[in-house]
Design a protein around this nucleic acid. Structure first.
Lengths: 199, 199
DNA sequence: CCCACACGTTAATGAACGTTAACTTCCGTC
DNA sequence: GACGGAAGTTAACGTTCATTAACGTGTGGG
């Protein structure tokens, strides 16, 4: 019986990373439940069941993607905030970092808030915890950067402002292609939104 | 053979509206592909296939929901903008209207930008066209309300601002329960974001 | 009275899908 | 040079699910 040969990755990426990338692309385009494992396999040049050598299952792929992006957002956000001098610079660093993610990992940003409900309960808790910590980081920095928001009663306002900035930046992939000028504009808008509280 | 009796709607709503409501709730909670027709049927007190007396299929339910909310948003937005005196009042009216939708049809607002990709090509085009018209309405009003944004080069900024306001208002259902105070706060934030361009 | 029709029911169908099983191929190592 | 494990393959399994088929029931107008 003749069978298809075992052909190596052929790309520079390790197979596991290649799977991550293609799965993210497909999930973003048609939703987690709208994509079959055979299709993911075909995208990386292997058969569907072949994926099980690299991930425990389809659920595990989604969990890997969402936990990964959440961890990297938080980690990089902390690194940038800590490496900045003063709250204003920290805020600029956070904005820049988030914009970078929205550009480089556009698919993951899309999945990040759309496919949470397809995670196993435990993974969902993990991701939510990371997301919460990331928001907390932003809220702290914003309240330091804009003293009026430091008042206890202004906490919900600060939180809502942060969500508005996320919505603004994250809507980039939603609209047109990766237009750097437009993205820079959005970063400027984000600063503008927050600087409103200076008046 | 004994069978289950035919029991009438039992609720004040017509069956079709009852199905709309429950389907929206379930789709919002677990995603279009994550909900089976039997489950929707059970939620309204009939069997799964019984739904086919009211809708042509599961796809048709989603299409009905998304086209419906898009039409109502546009229609009500136009009514409010036309009924206002001056651009500033029109903008306030638009914000108020959108907030009302986010409160009253919270599930639909969630679905509106998450389940587009599960529509048949034709329905997707219809919804996108309505969404685009709604955004256009907002952009026009915003540019009239804030003269600096009327400049041709400021068009992308105006558009991004509108998306930011949507993100801000629509994130309400994402977070906690239906807290009127918080929603009012978000409406205020939305005005604040835009009034930034007055300076 | 009856009968047409709206509105249900249960059973069956057929396709899609995630996962497991059994088997093959290639390569680095002793 | 054998061999063990990593990384594939195809085939099969069991479920789930949307949809259709066939059949029943209540009700309002003739």
């Amino acid at each position: 019986m003749d069978r298809m040969p075992n052909v190596p990755p052929a790309s520079g990426l390790p197979r596991r990373d290649q799977i991550r990338k293609e799965a993210a692309r497909l999930f973003a385009a048609r939703g987690f439940l709208g994509v079959g494992v055979d299709e993911i396999g075909k995208a990386v040049g292997i058969s569907g069941p072949g994926l099980y050598r690299h991930f425990a299952g389809k659920d595990a792929m989604l969990a890997d993607l969402l936990v990964g992006i959440s961890e990297r957002l938080l980690e990089e956000g902390r690194r940038r905030a800590d490496g900045s001098e003063g709250p204003a610079a920290a805020l600029d660093a956070l904005i820049g970092g988030h914009v970078d993610f929205a550009l480089d990992d556009r698919d993951l940003i899309t999945l990040h808030d759309r496919e949470l409900l397809n995670l196993r309960e435990e993974d969902r808790r993990t991701v939510r915890r990371l997301q919460r910590a990331y928001v907390e980081l932003w809220v702290d920095v914003v309240r330091q950067a804009y003293p009026p928001l430091a008042a206890p009663t202004a906490e919900p306002v600060a939180r809502a402002s942060v969500h508005a900035v996320f919505g603004l930046i994250n809507s980039t992939p939603h609209s047109h292609g990766p237009n750097p000028a437009e993205v820079a504009e959005r970063a400027g808008l984000a600063r503008g939104l927050l600087s409103y509280y200076f008046d």
